[in-house]
């Protein structure tokens, strides 16, 4: 009876957004009299950081400090339509809508600044720290606050903008499946090391080495949150979870977290992540959505690692000790492969 180590690999790509399009999102941006901006959305923050990433996108586009922007979502009386937070569409679809809205508001702010400075709006730049100045002449400047005040109290302009992003709906050919699914893909590769006990059938994930290509990491810590948490979920899908342990039989369905199992804080494996950035041509600042795809490579990588360790193919999830033991017995013992 022994512990066997094995390594398994998997690589995946992932479509960003509802894959046939037809899923619009809108944004409204406006300034208060002091040059502080509100972004109104109907998008949902369920932990992925919707409020935070759209706030950074708005601040970058407006050219104001991120502290000067607040995202208000989701109230159907004040936020414009959004399809919803699913299908990895939040960053991509809503982000693009926010850019369009912020560009319109920024244009008004710059026109107001130009009128105050008596220059051409096309010659103005923002420094991202609350100042607007003439390109190449930083001393000819006005604060974003003063520009917004001038717009509203002297010039009679509303510093506001509207944005929508829509990829029109694609049709699907019934005979060939020809279609235009999504506009960009994220990528990942993952190598998992496991330890399999050939006496108990238990599988422990020891280590994860990954590379994720996310377009552009709009906020690296938010990306890290998704990749760490998502890979944990992938590991959980691989070897812990199911609502129907005897599928397709419905018996023994869990009713609480004592029978619905997930890895706890003592079960986690070190995860060494590398992030690659190949900006999506149509993504907000090149961003794609990392939140869904991060779990996907872990499931097959764990199964492949179990095979590498003891020579048992688990083609039905989850990888339970029972399935591993039955496989080992059917083979007449553990058969380590050591292929990777």
């Amino acid at each position: 009876m022994a512990l066997h180590r094995g390594r398994g690999f998997a690589a995946i790509n992932y479509p960003i957004g509802m894959n046939l399009g037809g899923d619009p999102s809108q944004a409204l941006v406006h300034s208060n009299p002091e040059g502080k901006f509100t972004v109104a959305l109907s998008s949902i923050d369920l932990g992925q950081g919707m409020k935070s990433v759209t706030r950074q996108i708005a601040a970058e586009t407006l050219g104001v400090p991120v502290e000067d922007v607040y995202v208000d979502t989701a109230d159907s009386d004040t936020g414009p339509h959004c399809m919803g937070s699913f299908a990895s569409r939040g960053t991509h679809r809503v982000g693009n809508a926010v850019i369009e809205a912020a560009q319109e508001a920024r244009a008004v702010m710059l026109e107001a600044a130009a009128e105050e400075l008596e220059v051409d709006a096309g010659d103005l730049v923002t420094d991202g720290r609350g100042s607007i100045h003439v390109k190449g002449a930083p001393s000819r400047a006005i604060t974003t606050m003063a520009a917004c005040q001038a717009a509203q109290f002297r010039q009679g302009r509303t510093v506001s903008g509207r944005g929508i992003f829509l990829i029109p709906l694609s049709e699907v050919d019934p005979d060939t499946g020809e279609m235009t699914p999504v506009s960009c893909f994220a990528h990942a590769a993952m190598l998992v090391e496991v330890e399999v006990d050939d006496e108990t059938g238990e599988v422990r994930v020891l280590d994860m080495q990954s590379a994720y290509e996310v377009g552009r990491a709009l906020n690296p810590r938010l990306v890290e949150q998704q990749l760490v948490g998502g890979a944990w979920m992938g590991m959980s899908h691989a070897a812990w979870e199911t609502t129907e342990p005897r599928y397709p039989d419905r018996a023994h369905g869990p009713v609480d977290f004592n029978s619905y199992l997930m890895p706890g804080p003592g079960d986690i494996a070190p995860h060494h992540i590398s992030v690659l950035e190949r900006p999506a041509p149509d993504g907000p600042f090149g961003g794609k959505g990392p939140g869904e795809m991060c779990a996907n490579p872990v499931l097959p990588a764990v199964c492949n690692a179990v095979y590498d360790a003891v020579g048992v193919r688990i083609d039905e999830l989850p990888v339970t000790p029972e399935k591993v033991l039955r496989g080992i017995r059917a083979n007449g013992g553990a058969r380590p492969r050591g292929r990777l």
Binding site: V228, G229, F257, P265, I268
Partner: peptide, 12 residues
């Protein structure tokens, strides 16, 4: 150990 989190993977 008795506090579940579904988002973070616990490490943070």
């Amino acid at each position: 150990g008795g506090n579940l989190c579904r988002c973070t993977g616990y490490a943070p």
